[in-house]
Design a protein around this nucleic acid. Structure first.
Lengths: 62, 62
DNA sequence: ATCTTATGTAAAGGACACTTTACACGAGGT
DNA sequence: ACCTCGTGTAAAGTGTCCTTTACATAAGAT
């Protein structure tokens, strides 16, 4: 599952650690998501979409 | 996380086993999702949304 | 040259997502 | 009485999600 997390994060000038804090996950989790090591849980996907004010479908594509 | 899976399934006259087949998961997984025992993975959430022709946000709410 | 910041990665562990097999129960049809 | 169908649940196993701790490296600032 492809995602635009890195693009959306850097567009805002945030580090992975910044984003991790805002999502209430570890920095390693943000790194793993950006590098495609695994997909987020559904609740985390909702937090990501809400933070970036986009729909889940706009950020992730199957 | 709340979801409308049972409502959408019964509206179509499908059994849990019918839905499981269409989603390519076990019947127990459908039952667990409907009963709120756990949330689907993100890929499965996409398959559910696609099957019902709705957005993930229309089916699940945090 | 040293320090800091950002990123990538590893290992070990806990919790969750999903499987298969199996059993129980109620409702309806014959 | 029996059979089938739909649903609920349990136990054991596998893999994924996410954690903490820890180390490595590159780039930039001083």
């Amino acid at each position: 599952m492809n995602n635009r997390i890195q693009e959306l994060r850097t567009k805002r000038g945030w580090s992975q650690a910044d984003l991790a804090t805002r999502l209430d996950v570890s920095r390693q989790t943000v790194n793993a998501l950006e590098r495609g090591r695994y997909d987020p849980s559904l609740p985390l996907a909702f937090r990501i979409a809400s933070l970036f004010e986009l729909s889940i479908e706009d950020i992730f594509r199957p």
